[in-house]
Design a protein around this nucleic acid. Sequence first.
DNA 1: AAGGTAGTTGACGTATACGTAATCCGCTCT
DNA 2: AGAGCGGATTACGTATACGTCAACTACCTT
Lengths: 138, 138
Amino acid sequence: MMHVEHVQAQKLFSIGDLAEEHSISPRTIRFYEDQGLIAPSRIGGARIYTARDRARLKLILRGKRLGFSLADIKELLDLYDTDRSQVTQLQATLKKGRQRIADLEQQLRDLTVTLEELREIEGDVLHLLGSKGTTDKN
Amino acid sequence: MMHVEHVQAQKLFSIGDLAEEHSISPRTIRFYEDQGLIAPSRIGGARIYTARDRARLKLILRGKRLGFSLADIKELLDLYDTDRSQVTQLQATLKKGRQRIADLEQQLRDLTVTLEELREIEGDVLHLLGSKGTTDKN
DNA sequence: AAGGTAGTTGACGTATACGTAATCCGCTCT
DNA sequence: AGAGCGGATTACGTATACGTCAACTACCTT
């Protein structure tokens, strides 16, 4: 942690903090910044991350776990950031958001089917191992 | 379709058939074969795909939609192909299968959360658009 | 026989997502 | 003062997943 704990309560993080917390490299975080996914403020040259920046990073990583490209994730983040006063913007957001929802619903179906199949295999394998005299709980 | 419809009932496919059906290029299918994900038989030099090969391709593409790498997908396919007579193999399959299940369950949680957030945004946007006098069903 | 269509194997090119130095501050600690 | 640490930029390297020719073959169709 940065040496600011008792200075302010606003919880700030260094790039190293976030890297370690999420088991990624600082290089990765800088790359995300290069791609416009996150924009920390600076103190001198050093990047300084607020709790909001950290939440954004978590969103990025969740997107990655879902198999999104960084470009996809950028669009996703833009949905959260939409200017709520511009009707045209809102309409674009709605359209993109609905497309993303449809994609995720497809992914949900794929996921469900795959999980079912894997669980079936697990059952089969357990049954086979049992009938072969193995008593293994591993 | 290949010109075999009335010759036999076993449904065979050319690489072009499968490519078109799944909106991918023949090059992609050949690449999957290079990576050991699929192994069609040959007639002369030409690849010939059975219904089983086609099902395998569908599994590959489903894996891709879930964001798996081709290496991951190969392991997944290996789970289906496990030799049911080798206890050691079965135990390895069980272990890998359970790991995969755990990963997918994490993905399921990520997916659920993301869907919830997007639907909430959709609701917000709809409400905002409504209060701004727009009556749009698009 | 000639042309068109679909397939084959290389081989090289490319976008994405970082890894890996190399080199250079700025700060703290002894 | 000097060493060490964390962070910065710049630049080149790399694995994955194909795209894109090129050059050739086999099979119809006209």
